[in-house]
């Protein structure tokens, strides 16, 4: 069995040059939170044949899902230190109409993605007898239950991850305002439309190789109780936000996760 796993991991790695692996398992997210939830859903969505997907979070937590036809059809071993959800409810058949089971599964998954470490997945062949072909939980059901927007752009994911602690943010798609948030959004909108384009032009004159790419620039004004203004660009989308300088590390972390390439 160990040889099979090793061989599967090696072949998969050869077939997917550029992806990151840890102990033979494919790294699907560099940290936890919504990015990790979306990555888990993508892994399920990529699985047509019946497989047991072993997800690992950091060194301690593991979660085994039996997946077939892009649906979770079973939950096997769950090992998440400190989790409080009732995993005895996670028994076959999994049905979205079973509220208690859905609640337990959501709590289990949320406990699993509470990590700063990478999350990896290793698929192995699985077989099950019986069961209806349509049984199990679709990723759309799971995305709704877990509050994940599967097709959100990196910029949207970044701004949403920051919205709890930034006083204001504006989001533009192809120079058209897509969303705004916070009391100071009007000031930011004025800045975005009147002066930020000059800042972007000056920035791209410095770093022309980043034209069309993803980048983030933060400027802190004053040193005591400093406020920051951040200009983020990902393809055709622009984000402008303010934050207290004490949140700068969180903002940069959110940007890394939203634009990560794993």
């Amino acid at each position: 069995m160990a040889d099979t796993i090793d061989l599967t991991a090696r072949l998969t790695k050869l077939a997917n040059a550029g992806e990151t692996y840890s102990n033979g398992a494919r790294v699907i997210a560099r940290g936890g939170g919504e990015e990790a939830l979306a990555a888990i859903l993508r892994a399920i969505d990529d699985t047509i044949l019946m497989r047991k997907l072993t997800f690992r979070s950091g060194r301690e937590s593991s979660l085994n899902l039996v997946v077939s036809g892009r649906r979770i059809v079973g939950v096997s071993d769950v090992d998440i230190p400190g989790q409080t959800s009732d995993t005895t409810l996670l028994t076959d058949p999994l049905s979205e109409e079973d509220d208690a089971m859905m609640q337990a599964l959501t709590e289990t998954i949320l406990a699993f993605v509470q990590t700063d470490g990478p999350i990896s997945v290793l698929p192995v062949k699985a077989s099950r007898s019986g069961g209806m072909p349509t049984a199990g939980l679709s990723i759309r059901t799971l995305a709704d239950a877990w509050g994940v927007e599967m097709d959100a752009t990196p910029m949207k994911r970044f701004l949403r991850a920051c919205q709890d602690f930034v006083p204001a943010a504006v989001h533009y798609k192809a120079d058209i305002l897509a969303n705004r948030h916070g009391d100071e959004a009007t000031d930011l909108q004025t800045l975005a439309e009147e002066r930020a384009p000059s800042a972007e032009t000056a920035y791209l004159a410095l770093y022309p190789e980043q034209t069309g790419g993803s980048w983030l620039i933060n400027i802190s004004y004053g040193l005591k109780d400093a406020r920051c203004v951040l200009l983020a660009r990902a393809g055709e989308e622009t984000g402008l936000l303010t934050c207290d300088s004490s949140h700068l590390g969180k903002v940069v972390g959110n940007w890394q996760r939203a634009t990560q390439h794993v």
Binding site: Q210, W215, L216, I217, Y221, G222, V252
Partner: peptide, 21 residues
């Protein structure tokens, strides 16, 4: 860049972080 991103005219840029991939 700092002056064009400032929300206030009376405070100069003090720190900057430029983050690319």
């Amino acid at each position: 860049i700092g002056s064009n991103l400032s929300l206030s005219d009376d405070t100069d840029a003090a720190q900057a972080v430029v983050f690319t991939s």
